[in-house]
Design a protein around this nucleic acid. Structure first.
Lengths: 205, 205
DNA sequence: ATTGAATGCGAATACATATTCGCATTATGT
DNA sequence: ACATAATGCGAATATGTATTCGCATTCAAT
């Protein structure tokens, strides 16, 4: 942020710009998100935009920071650890995921699709960290004895698998697969995998 | 394609353009892929480009068609069904996936990252179709009796999970997770999931 | 009320890029 | 060799977009 907004109106202007950025991305897609449109939607001139943000990327960064906080807060609010069995816990988490992706008219959807050209580190770390902690706590509480090796790898796989499978499904309006079927199957895959001992080969052949 | 190349040199020109498109995407990224650069790399003028392709998208479409064929051929060449157990079969498929993503200096990587703004239907269908057939044949051969319900959903989940987890991993140079660990764990997750009966809840709590 | 700082403005600037078009060159059939 | 079609060229055109800058307006403190 180039300059700190000091007065009330400029703080509102900054907020309006970040909100407008979200709105434009959600309505026009990241490719058609221009500083002109953002300023217009915010009811502000382009010049004012550059008073508080060094460039367009700075503005988008600010949006991502804000959303990372939202997601972090949303996750903390979910009482995932209260679930006794892993199936229920994972099911809740996946439901939350779908809810987020379907919220705000597809804003999150568009952002995840474009992860590779956005400053997503903060959000990704929030997610990864949270599920990592969750997994550790869960195993400590329920399987104090058996050692879960490769927990980092497992959480990495599971997080990305679920997230991108959901995004792919929502993005392509696949009428053949219902969202709750997908959620159920994802839950089964993840629960099965997370509760598999590290060494077993486990094919019931 | 705006006009069919009839003579030898123009057929070569078209091929050079498609090759150049791949090269530029791989070297500069999709965002910096311009008609000027493509023409330059192909050793051809921009004007000639528009003789055979209606627009830039047409050119990229032609590239995708060509790659879809390559992938289809590569898949057919893999003797996946010769594996007796599912673990080996899936492991081979995942190895193939990594090989493709690491080939051509990251061309495929960049294309998968940008799936949402590319004409990927043909490639996606090729993949989905192939693994669907494979799964059907495998279950017919090995478990003739028990009915695999939701096979479409399972294949959808598994394909996207593996593909995007691989892409995410390769993209972020995550030194903490080795590629073969990831491959092993992916194999375990997928094999476990694909061989799970449709109704079981299967958490060994 | 006055004044200096903060804020806000938007036309002007400086690229970058897709696409066209009139002309030059090369191939093909006779 | 000639005529005609196919091919190739690249400067010019049209459009879009990020960013700047000099000036106008509003605020906050005295």
């Amino acid at each position: 942020m180039r300059k700190r907004p000091q007065q009330q109106r400029s703080r509102e202007l900054v907020k309006a710009l970040i909100d407008a950025t979200a709105k434009v991305i959600q309505q026009q897609g990241l490719d058609n998100t221009t500083t002109a449109r953002i300023a217009e939607v915010a009811g502000v001139s382009v010049g004012s935009l550059y008073q508080y943000f060094g460039d367009k990327d700075g503005l988008i960064e600010a949006l991502m920071e804000s959303l990372a906080d939202d997601i972090g807060a949303g996750l903390k609010r979910l009482p995932l650890l209260d679930n006794v069995d892993m199936n229920a816990m994972i099911s809740s988490a996946i439901q939350f995921g779908f809810a987020v992706l379907n919220s705000r008219d597809g804003l999150y959807l568009e952002l995840v699709r474009n992860w590779h050209r956005l400053p997503t580190d903060r959000v990704v770390n929030t997610l990864q960290q949270h599920f990592m902690d969750l997994a550790r706590l869960y195993f400590l509480r329920h399987y104090q004895d058996y050692p879960i090796r490769n927990l980092e790898v497992r959480v990495f796989i599971v997080t990305n698998s679920v997230l991108f499978t959901m995004v792919r499904h929502i993005s392509q309006h696949n009428g053949l697969i219902r969202e709750d079927d997908l959620a159920n199957e994802l839950t089964r895959m993840v629960a099965g995998y997370m509760t598999t001992p590290p060494d077993s080969q486990d094919a019931p052949a």
